[in-house]
Design a protein around this nucleic acid. Structure first.
Lengths: 201, 201
DNA sequence: GTCTATACTCTGATAGAC
DNA sequence: GTCTATCAGAGTATAGAC
């Protein structure tokens, strides 16, 4: 990416990343086109390519920008806190991410679904380390009898899958629920209930 | 699609549907190319287009072929059975689908993720009807105090999300678990435990 | 019925005017 | 810095030989 120097460069760089997020999240890498991204960003295609050298560069910039945000909620689990409340707070934070950043969720979903070749190479190590670290915390809580004994890694998977479902499969959720529902409101209550029952000893 | 008459037509039609499933499931509709499908099917591109008039026709044929299989496990829930065991059996059937037909799962995931425009138009009604019907059965069980009181539709969503996660995000699951794990084996035990705790009164 | 050749469109990327 | 014009390659689809 071009290092932004002027106000107009700053604005255009942002517009491209924003438009790219929109289009890549809906179509996946191969399905997305620079034409569409340029239109959404309000630029010509050559102008877009003045800021980023290639389609791949746009995609990589967007992916890496979102990574931290995506893993932060897991990092925030506090080994010194109350186990059940820590887990329920994690579920809430993840559900809020799905509600407030559904495009980011779908971007990752597309990426993983399509093999994650661009993503996993870079984060496989750190991701596994973080999960292992937190799984050890959960295991400790289980050994102390403070939460129910379950496979800790699959417990983390279950939180990812249940919360991200509402962003990734949004159109299906809304189609099945019908009108007059607030999916995230209902999901919040449902998941709180589900994990409280599941985790309590 | 061409109505198969000869043995060679039968074989080629199958090969195209099989190859299309493979490629569409990994790339989504727009990301998939006829070139790739033809190569996987072992045919030339024009020959592929002799059997199906267009890319869209191949895709539509594959989608509709898989729909029944995908909804059958939900249909099989028996209102006259034991509530908790019926639900756990449903979870098992869905997990087996993910294990045995991961490409079909990813095909639907891509489709829904990318807006489901080709799918929902055709099945929105039937899908919602089926879910509503089974949600009423669950609600009845809850009213009778035979399973825990939870939002029945979100309960169904939770089963979809937890089971399909293992097919759709397979590469992430395996990357995080590391080697020496059988994801579906562990997931079976985990989900059985989770839903037994969640549903028991 | 199947293949080769090809038409035509879309896509990513570049050159060069302003 | 941004635009118009354009290229090469990939993409869907068709024509016509065999």
């Amino acid at each position: 990416m071009l290092k932004p120097k002027t106000r107009i460069q700053e604005r255009n760089s942002r517009a491209i990343l924003e438009a790219g997020l929109e289009v890549f999240a809906q179509q996946g890498y191969r399905g997305a086109t620079l034409d569409e991204i340029a239109v959404v960003a309000g630029l010509s295609k050559p102008n877009l390519l003045y800021y980023f050298p290639s389609k791949d560069a746009v995609y990589a910039a967007i992916l890496s920008r979102q990574l931290e945000t995506w893993l932060d909620p897991l990092r925030m689990i506090d080994p010194a806190g109350d186990p059940v409340e820590e887990m329920l707070a994690y579920v809430r934070r993840k559900l809020e991410l799905s509600r407030d950043y559904p495009r980011e969720s779908r971007l990752f979903a597309n990426e993983v679904l399509q093999g994650a070749s661009r993503l996993l190479a870079g984060i496989e190590g750190p991701l596994k380390s973080l999960v292992d670290e937190k799984a050890a915390v959960l295991q400790g809580w289980m050994d102390e009898g403070r939460i129910a004994k379950l496979h800790p890694v699959h417990l983390i998977f279950s939180i990812w899958s249940l919360t991200q479902h509402y962003a990734d499969f949004d159109v299906q959720v809304r189609a099945v629920l019908g009108t007059g529902h607030d999916p995230y409101d209902e999901a919040g209550a449902f998941l709180d209930h589900l994990f409280r029952r599941t985790l309590s000893v």
